[in-house]
Design a protein around this nucleic acid. Structure first.
Length: 748
RNA sequence: GGGCUGUUAGCUCAGUUGGUUAGAGCGCCUCGUUUACACCGAGGAGGUCCAAGGUUCGAGUCCUUGACGGCCCACCA
């Protein structure tokens, strides 16, 4: 047998990937009593192609391949995420290209369109992951919107309700008027801006604000109680310019004396801090900006204006009224939508919240005391604890269509004040309370063309879709808020394994290792811990391993605008999946950025070619029909150099194994790389060129097959391809061959 | 305003608990091709380990301070 001249990775890599996928070799056998090794794939977005970050799944694959070879029942479970807002955002961009927007459609139609769009592109990420050589159990592939998964998610929602951990409240929400949905604080980005701060004359006092268009929603002026300048004014009133409404001057410690004029206008309807102060002082909440970002409840001339023009108009009028005392430059950070970069508009909205404290407490204990759960690298433990300890109640409502609707139903007849927005038959947007609209539009029209509803706090609701328990009526609408994506992906360890009764769940939960980039620690890892512990009492994974970001060859963050984004599939085309995989773990400190550039990829590819050529030499040198002992060295006269390399090989086996166990993939891969290139190829192999004795042949073969196995988790394709050419082997495929153990060597 | 992290060869980075002449890949220089491999081989040049101070028999490694990066969090209107 002979190996061809040079490996054509674009031939053998896809062929082997397809073969192993179809063979079902990665479907584990459940062996009661034996501890399985389980990894759940952090699901990529169902509709997007992979980006380089996803190539880091190689970490999970290394672990899984290693454990599979070690003989552990190993499950690497793949899946995809519907990715609520992300997907809807992508789809809206696509709509925009055709000159349409989501407001042109009722939610049912829009949902169907997105569903189709996702289904059409659904396979892309999956086939790309196949190409990268991830050893998934494809028979267990999951999707976050599958009915059986939704059942579990709704069940958790119901349990939260039953346990009194679920409530509705009207609070300030970070609202993006462009995306049309609220976000949690975590999802808000900040941008440094140079703005103008306006000093406005409120008769008795002068305030400073960057948002003069919200003065119509002012309900008080607050000063710091220790501020000598204003002490005498507390309890008096001030007058809002332009509308001359009198509002009280109050004292609150949250006001900073040194900022602006030291007097803060309180606008609880449009600012989170003001909302808090308003709560403390039982102040009313006025709303002057709606969800479209337009002014309402203001003097007539500003009605319907968008925020920015309204600000300008108000300033013009304030100037004319001589209420504008002065303006100053202000450099500050403004909240922007993490998706579309639009300025966040804090608005009052009724939303669904999960009480977080009762969920957090047991998790804090588990994390602190490492009760069946650890974080690697350790430095992230304190981050996780900080996130846990400061987590506010969780707003799980999102005002988008792409996702599971929150499973509660409102009876319109019992709650006629519910505000509905829908398209009339002539495609006009109609919005108002059901009470006001029900005589003009039939319930059927509203249902059929519904875009969204807003149920005021206090509305009664049902927990299943059936006739109203009170009035027996059938005018029932399901909540239009959908779950925050993390509400469903946070239950991934439960849903993928079929909580609570399936065989899989009983055998594979808790899972072994969960690896992601550190940036979703609070979004995802924390939520999985909360849900996992809430529903099972156990952390959903024994180890959370956090890796770093993939950056370009110069160590710079990849970004579209810089044009340095690396497409993993292009890299695979050019250098092969093995080279990419190796480049992602080679020479990297734990949780340090991974610099990925051509130079490194070339180096990795060269190593793969080198390995091929070493194998080619050894196979060529091995006479036809030679039987190679695979379980130790037989009684045969070895030369000193043979024993020496076998001893080094033994050390290598130990180093590699221990390094993988400790997640030090860099050390593991570099050790084998160094051994193969320098010890095996440059030294030993050269020294055997004039030998034809059995000892040399056997040693070469044993060293080769051992190295192939040690390298297989990192570079599965080339090792499998070479293995398939070997005349003697211990398994049909290398990915199910035994992990190397140290050889017993003759003592002399 | 808090917190984290980095600064080691031209470039990208390793250096576990402090211990002999500080390493890798790529790049560079010289030489080599009927060779398993030019996606190669042999050899070589190249570092006051950011700065200052301290602990120590001994510091790239620990401590303090400073400089310059990067990142995260925060209700400065």
């Amino acid at each position: 047998m002979e190996l061809p001249k040079r490996p054509e990775f674009n031939e053998y890599e896809p062929r082997l990937a397809k073969q192993s996928r179809e063979s079902g070799r990665y479907t584990p056998t459940i062996k009661p009593g034996e501890k399985p090794f389980t990894v759940l794939l952090p699901p990529p977005n169902a509709n997007d192609p992979l980006h380089v970050g996803h190539a880091m799944y190689v970490v999970e694959d290394i672990l899984c391949r290693y454990h599979r070879m070690k003989g552990d029942p190993t499950l690497f479970l793949p899946g995809t995420d519907h990715a609520g807002i992300e997907t809807q955002f992508v789809f809206e961009k696509y709509l925009a290209k055709e000159g349409r927007s989501r407001f042109d459609f009722d939610r049912e139609t829009l949902y169907q369109m997105i569903d189709e769009f996702v289904n059409k592109n659904r396979g892309i990420a999956l086939s790309q992951m196949e190409r990268l050589g991830f050893s998934f159990d494809w028979s267990r592939e999951k999707y976050t919107l599958s009915p059986e998964i939704l059942d579990i998610i709704f069940d958790t929602f119901r349990k939260l309700y039953d346990d009194g951990l679920l409530y509705r409240d009207e609070r300030i929400v970070n609202y993006c008027t462009k995306c049309g949905t609220g976000f949690s604080n975590l999802e808000v980005d900040h941008e440094e801006r140079d703005d103008v701060i306006y000093h406005l004359d409120y008769k008795t006092i002068t305030i400073a604000t960057t948002r003069p268009e919200t003065i119509f929603a002012d309900v008080a002026i607050a000063v710091n109680p220790t501020d000598e300048r204003y002490k005498s004014l507390i309890g008096k009133t001030a007058t809002i310019p332009l509308i001359n409404r009198e509002i009280p001057i109050i004292a609150d410690e949250a006001v900073e004396k040194d900022f602006g004029t030291g007097a803060l206008k309180i606008t609880p309807g449009h600012d989170p801090l003001d909302y808090e102060i308003g709560e403390r002082h039982s102040l009313p909440r006025l709303t002057v900006i709606n969800r479209a970002g337009r002014l309402i409840n203001t003097p007539e001339k500003y009605l319907g204006m968008k925020v920015k023009p309204a600000r300008e108009a108000v300033i013009v009028d304030l100037t004319a009224a001589e209420s504008l005392v002065k303006t100053e430059e202000l450099h500050h950070a403004v909240g922007i939508c993490y998706r579309c970069k639009n300025t966040i508009e804090p608005l009052l909205l009724p939303q669904w919240y999960v009480k977080i404290k009762p969920l957090v407490d047991p998790v804090v204990q588990i994390v602190e005391q490492e009760q069946g759960f650890k974080v690697y690298p350790l430095k992230f433990k304190q981050d996780l604890l900080r996130w846990l300890n400061t987590a506010p109640d969780w707003n799980i409502s999102r005002q988008i269509v792409w996702g599971p609707r929150i499973p509660v139903w409102y009876c319109l007849d019992c709650n006629p004040q519910i505000e509905v927005t829908f398209l009339s038959d002539s495609k006009e947007t109609i919005s108002g309370s059901y009470q006001d609209l029900k005589d003009t539009y039939s319930f059927e029209t509203i249902v059929r063309n519904l875009q969204n509803l807003i149920a005021p706090i206090g509305s009664t609701y049902l927990l299943a879709d059936h006739a109203c328990e009170k009035c027996r009526g059938n005018h029932i609408l399901r909540e239009t808020d959908t779950f925050d994506t993390w509400f469903s992906s946070g239950q991934w360890p439960l849903t993928t394994l079929g909580f609570p009764d399936s065989k899989d769940f009983k055998y594979f939960y808790p899972t072994s290792v969960l690896d992601t980039m550190w940036d979703i620690l609070p979004f995802w890892i924390m939520r999985m811990l909360l849900f996992g512990v809430y529903r099972t009492g156990k952390a959903p994974f024994e180890v959370a391993h956090l890796h770093a970001r993939v950056v370009d060859g110069k160590g710079k963050k990849m970004s579209k605008s810089k044009g340095n984004v690396v497409n993993p599939m292009a890299v695979v085309e050019k250098y092969g999946a093995d080279a990419l995989r190796l480049a992602l773990v080679f020479g990297i400190a734990p949780a340090a950025d991974v610099a990925l550039g051509d130079q490194k990829l070339i180096g990795m590819r060269n190593f793969i070619t080198k390995l091929w050529n070493i194998a080619r030499f050894i196979v060529m040198k091995t006479p036809e029909g030679t039987s190679i002992p695979l379980n130790g060295i037989p009684d045969i006269q070895l030369e000193q150099s043979d024993i020496a390399i076998l001893q080094t090989l033994n050390e290598l086996i130990t180093t590699t194994t221990q390094s993988i166990e400790k997640y030090q993939f860099s050390i593991a891969s570099e050790s084998v790389y160094d051994f193969v290139w320098n010890t095996l190829a440059s030294q030993y192999l050269e020294s055997t060129k004039n030998r034809t004795d059995e000892a040399a042949i056997w040693t070469l073969n044993i060293v080769l097959i051992t190295c192939l196995k040690l390298l297989h988790p990192f570079i599965p394709f080339i090792t499998a391809e070479i293995y398939s050419y070997l005349p003697n082997k211990d398994a049909e495929h290398i990915d199910i061959a035994d992990w190397p153990k140290e050889l017993m060597l003759p003592s002399n």
